[in-house]
Design a protein around this nucleic acid. Structure first.
Lengths: 134, 134
DNA sequence: ATAAGCCTTCCAGTTGTGGGAATGTCAAGA
DNA sequence: TCTTGACATTCCCACAACTGGAAGGCTTAT
């Protein structure tokens, strides 16, 4: 299978597959006579794994660790779980931060009448005050 | 005031102030005889504005637009409000995405017993299945 | 004189791709 | 057979928003 077919099957763009190879996330592909990269089923499976983990917000580096755990058939499931729980904590931190930002923004916009007049508490507060800060 | 004092007063690192100048977010600072950048109260105020807007998740480009709105004393408050509401929508999209990711991760970890045994639904699902997908 | 603590510019690295150029290869149709 | 289109290759640049570091200049105090 050429890189284009793999890209189609996995949803990972060809360019990204080459990048993953370059940074060592996946091993170098076997080359055909013409120099084209050649892939098999395992490669597709691996790239799907990577794609799903990426969609779950794991960094590429994290995905590397997950792949290592995946390949190590003897690791304790506790290790994997700890890793995932850690990532959940990180996601929750980001959610909390965004929610705090959202609250501040809503506070600002609520007090802005939003008509033709120029005075606007949003900019006033950005300029002068601390907005809903701790 | 030298760049270091401004950095201290505003919380924006000196390096970042130079960067903002370079990309045109703030105008080039006046230089003293010795080539040092020199700042006044307005500059501090502007950088505080920028800092607050950045903390509210506005991109640097967005901050540029906010600064323009801020300086244009005659713009309608509706313009500013629309801008902010738009940003709220964007923040809410990001929150929703993260919450969906979080739900998937929790679904995975809940089914992983997390002990010494090697079998782990987290990796199994990443490898084989579509996780809580639409 | 020298040391510390500022300041300056410039260059490179970060994360995870995407775009595009220049070039090579393959399969199919006129 | 020649050409055309759709692939593939490598290489380098760009993005966002900084951050770090090197190499050097200025100021002030000791």
């Amino acid at each position: 299978m050429n890189i284009g077919s793999v890209a189609e099957k996995t949803g990972v763009p060809a360019k990204t597959i080459r990048y993953y190879e370059e940074i060592g996330l996946i091993p170098p592909a076997i080359r055909a006579e013409n120099g084209y990269r050649h892939y098999g089923r395992n490669d597709v499976e691996t790239l799907r794994f990577i794609q799903r983990a990426r969609r779950l917000g794991f960094s590429v580096k994290d995905v590397g660790n997950l792949l290592a755990l995946w390949r190590d058939k003897k690791r304790a499931s506790a290790d994997v779980k700890a890793f995932a729980l850690n990532h959940i904590k990180e996601v929750e931190r980001r959610i909390a931060e965004l929610q705090s930002i959202r609250a501040s923004l809503i506070h600002l916009t609520d007090r802005c009448h939003g008509d033709d007049r120029p005075d606007c508490p949003i900019l006033d507060d950005l300029a002068k005050a601390v907005v809903l800060s701790q």
